[in-house]
Design a protein around this nucleic acid. Sequence first.
DNA 1: GCCGCAAAGTTGTTAAACAATCTGGTGGCC
DNA 2: GGCCACCAGATTGTTTAACAACTTTGCGGC
Lengths: 220, 220
Amino acid sequence: MVDSDSRTTRYSQVYEELRTVLLSGAYEPNTRLTEADLTTRFEVSRGTIRSVLVRLAQEGYVTSEANRGVRTRSFTLSEAADILEARETLEAALAGKAAERATDREIAELRATLEGMEAAQGKSDQAAYSRGNRAFHQQVKAAAHQATLARTYDTLLYPLVMRQYRNISAQHPRAGSLAEHRAILLAIITRNPDAAAAAMRHHVGSARRALLLDRGPVRE
Amino acid sequence: MVDSDSRTTRYSQVYEELRTVLLSGAYEPNTRLTEADLTTRFEVSRGTIRSVLVRLAQEGYVTSEANRGVRTRSFTLSEAADILEARETLEAALAGKAAERATDREIAELRATLEGMEAAQGKSDQAAYSRGNRAFHQQVKAAAHQATLARTYDTLLYPLVMRQYRNISAQHPRAGSLAEHRAILLAIITRNPDAAAAAMRHHVGSARRALLLDRGPVRE
DNA sequence: GCCGCAAAGTTGTTAAACAATCTGGTGGCC
DNA sequence: GGCCACCAGATTGTTTAACAACTTTGCGGC
């Protein structure tokens, strides 16, 4: 919201803002976004908005059809499962690389994050646990030192999928979640890439299994 | 990905054309592309070109800096190695999924492609071998039935990397290339995901090892 | 040869306009 | 009543012209 850097272009400001709005879940899936609405909302010209929309469409935040405008993204159940499966593969690979390449400092940070999660669980502080969980996965990603897979991971639209199928666990941590994180970190500390990948695959796979079990909301 | 509609927009035509040009290697890496040149070359207005460039920048075909325009992409050696490593992970994962999910028809197609490659090698027909090689990898990708990883694989910019560091083998097939393909297909046929992934990882890894061995051209 | 500065070049952005296409509603017809 | 053709309004695709903001280039002075 803040008019932060005057050094940047209006285009990239609007891109950031609109992307944030889309990630926030302010729009239902498949909501039509008209250029006229966006130009008045962000007070930019159509040309600028169109460039922003091209980029968001390319990234998959919205879908675009010729002459029919742009809609917020909606995922079928099988698309959601496909994305979650890809996330499994990618994050397992990142964990494996992290076991090979994490620096001592990165391992120390992971350890600290895990301790924070244990404390949060002890106090039943869900919000803190969830923050720690996100930090843990981000830190594993960073420790992998694999820019291409990291970027790929970031473009998975996983947050949008979660938002649409929000009955997936991950709000209240599953029993066992903490132990799974411990197993991942242990494998990284002991420099065992295969074990780290397997542990991460098992951990992340729980989200997909949860989705497939209870089918999600009824949606075209 | 397919524009099923024969009625398409000028924007997407220019996008396809310019992308093809970039992939063809017509420009040296890091060549500046000015909007004025592109508008005259493709005979569209600046607005249209700008949208095309936003998309190409998002996909990584070009890099874009505020107020400084757009340049064709250039890869440092470490970026190239990073991309090749990611390709190893992704294609190994796809081969593993293919071993689980390939239909009989897809396996038959793979078999036919491999036979074509054997024939090409017998006749020392490099072009035919190379075509077969590309087809083989495309078919494995399709047989994996994993849309997200397949799309990710397609966005790797691997062709651009190869073009910049063109001393990597892959022109004249390495000795052993054919045997590696046979091993991959065998693992898929026998429904052995781990073996398929390992075989593919070994096969694809040869390109990266070749790059790292002879360092590529001297380039900042 | 180096520095600063004006000139030229290029990008960022807007506004207005029109064609092409899509959407919604109206009325006729069976 | 339900279905269809057709029209009007809304929306997107695209262009032109313009100007501000920024970057690069070349020149003259020191």
